[in-house]
């Protein structure tokens, strides 16, 4: 969906050819989202069908066709930019699911599972941070992508930290049940 609006955004600067759109898309997204040319032309055809762009001539060869944005296209683009993405409902996060599942599997050390994920995420963060360390003057789109990833991954590490503490606290807290005292103590030890 966002490829569609990214192309509309590029066309809002002026008319362009398909190949040019592909190159500009990649540069504008910090070169981290490669786009194949087939996807560009398919998207352009749909945008044209929906009346959001129009081609400038009737050339049969797509590579020779220039495209420009229509008034409707500009309205749709502005609306999309201001519409929040679907973040209201919690996503079915795979990592969260794994930790919840780990709580139920006998013999699994949840702290160890949490640490395994923490290690892997920190390692990924090291790789992203290396771009910053190696290049203090990186171009704006790439710098924004790097920070977006680091912020996302940093939030995961923070959540893993909270989860770690909550699991420890839950193991220490008195269990709200009629379980005999001895058994409660055993729960604490495990």
């Amino acid at each position: 969906m966002s490829v569609r609006y990214a192309l509309l955004a590029l066309l809002s600067e002026g008319s362009k050819y398909g190949m040019q759109l592909r190159e500009e898309f990649e540069a504008a997204t910090g070169d981290v989202w490669p786009l194949n040319v087939g996807q560009v032309y398919t998207t352009l055809q749909r945008l044209e069908r929906d009346g959001l762009i129009e081609s400038e001539d009737d050339d049969e060869d797509e590579r020779q066709k220039g495209y420009r944005i229509t008034a409707q296209g500009a309205t749709d683009l502005a609306e999309w930019l201001h519409t929040p993405p679907a973040t209201a409902a919690p996503p079915r996060d795979e990592l969260v699911t794994k930790i919840l599942v780990a709580l139920r599997v006998p013999g699994v050390d949840v702290h160890e599972v949490i640490q395994a994920h923490r290690r892997q995420v920190v390692e990924l963060m090291q790789q992203w941070t290396r771009f910053k360390a190696d290049d203090a003057e990186m171009d704006l789109p790439f710098a924004l992508v790097v920070d977006a990833e680091l912020t996302r991954l940093g939030a995961i590490v923070r959540w893993l930290g909270f989860a770690d503490k909550q699991v420890t606290r839950a193991a220490k807290a008195p269990v709200q049940s009629t379980t005999p005292k001895l058994r409660r103590r055993m729960v604490v030890r495990s």
Binding site: Q115, V122, Q126, W128
Partner: peptide, 28 residues
Amino acid sequence: HDAHLASWADRVLFLRDGRSVDHVAPDP
């Protein structure tokens, strides 16, 4: 305690309850 800071390091040692529980040292 901040992963953002730790990610600048060549190596990260994880401590938990006074013990070293893990480390990462990726090949650059």
